[in-house]
C-alpha cells in the first residue's frame, strides 16, 4: 500500500505575487482513509484544495490519484478522475431546487445532449429515460442525507445547515472516489455537527469513499480522522495520528501563538 498510495501530493508550491501560499507541500492519502488537514487561518488549506481540484494551477509539484497525474487539469477534468469537493463558503446553484442541485452532480453520468433533449416528448424518449433514471439516483442520496423535506425547495430558501448538507449531496452524486470537504462543519449547530460526523463515517464505510477534510473543530477532527496533517504558512508542520499531531508542540504553538 505504501509503495503505491491512492492519492499523493508531491512538493506542490503556489504563490500569489509575493505571498507564498504553499511551499513544497507533500503528503499521501491511503484508500478508505479519513485524512484531515488542520492549520490556522491563512495556512493554505483552501489553496491546497483549489490546487488539487484545478481551480488553481500549482507553480511546481505534482498531484496524482491512483498513479494518474492530474496536476494542472481543469476542474471538470479533475472531476472526471472521480474527485469531488464542497466549498468553504457554500457554492450552491441558488436559483435551483435541492433536487436540481444534486441532479447537477449527475451531469457526468448523464448522456442527454441538445438534440435528444429537444425531443423529450414522451416517456420512453432517450432524454426522458435519462432524466428518470438519474432522478431516482438523486432520490437515493436525498434519502441518505435526510433531505426529503427540502427536495423541491429552492436552495436559497433553505437554512444554512441544510445548504451545507445539500452541497455534500451534490458532491456525492458525482460518485467520487475521493471527496474533499472544506470546513463542512463551520456554522453548524452541535446537533447538525453530530449528524455530519455520522454521515462522513457512513460515506467512508458504506460507499468506500476516501475523504480529505479541512476542519477547524479539533474535537470533530480527533473524533473521525485516521490521520492528520497540520500546516502553517503553506508548509507541513507535522503529520501523523490524532495523538501525534494534537500533542505536537509546534501545532500547539501555531494555534495558540508562541509563549
Amino acid at each position: 500500500m505504501s509503495n503505491n498510495p491512492f492519492f499523493t501530493v508531491d512538493k506542490i508550491s503556489k504563490s500569489f505575487g509575493g505571498l507564498q501560499a504553499l511551499k513544497e507541500l507533500s503528503f499521501h492519502v491511503n484508500k478508505g482513509e479519513i485524512y484531515s488537514v488542520i492549520g490556522p487561518n491563512g495556512a493554505g488549506k483552501s489553496t491546497l484544495f483549489n490546487c488539487i481540484n484545478g481551480i488553481y494551477k500549482p507553480d511546481t509539484g505534482s498531484v496524482k490519484i491512483q498513479g494518474q497525474e492530474i496536476t494542472g487539469l481543469r476542474p471538470d477534468q479533475v472531476a472526471a478522475h472521480k474527485i469531488s469537493r464542497t466549498f468553504q463558503n457554500i457554492e450552491l446553484f441558488s436559483n435551483m431546487t435541492t433536487m436540481d442541485n444534486i441532479l447537477l452532480g449527475r451531469h457526468m453520468h448523464m448522456k442527454t445532449g441538445v438534440f435528444s433533449a429537444s425531443a423529450m416528448l414522451w416517456k420512453n424518449s432517450f432524454s426522458a429515460k435519462d432524466e428518470t433514471e438519474h432522478r431516482r439516483k438523486v432520490d437515493e442520496i436525498i434519502d441518505f442525507l435526510d433531505l426529503q423535506a427540502s427536495r423541491n425547495k429552492l436552495v436559497s430558501q433553505l437554512p444554512y445547515g441544510i445548504q451545507k448538507i445539500a452541497e455534500l449531496g451534490r458532491a456525492l452524486a458525482t460518485e467520487p472516489e475521493l471527496l474533499l470537504l472544506d470546513e463542512p462543519a463551520a456554522g453548524l449547530t452541535n446537533e447538525e455537527r453530530e449528524d455530519l460526523i455520522f454521515w462522513i463515517r457512513d460515506i467512508r464505510d458504506e460507499l468506500g469513499i476516501t475523504i480529505i477534510l479541512i476542519e477547524h473543530n479539533i474535537q470533530m477532527v480527533s473524533e473521525i480522522s485516521d490521520r492528520i496533517i497540520a500546516i502553517n504558512f503553506g508548509k507541513k508542520l507535522v503529520e501523523g495520528t490524532v495523538q501525534e499531531v494534537t500533542n505536537n508542540p509546534d501545532v500547539v504553538r501555531a494555534y495558540l501563538g508562541a509563549d
Partner: peptide, 20 residues
C-alpha cells in the same frame, strides 16, 4: 434537461459547475 441545467449552473456558480 441536462444541458439546460448545466447552463443554469454556470449562471449561478461557475466554480461549482466546473467542480461538478
Amino acid at each position: 434537461s441536462r444541458v439546460g441545467r448545466a447552463f443554469q449552473a454556470i449562471r449561478d456558480s461557475d466554480i461549482a459547475a466546473s467542480a461538478a
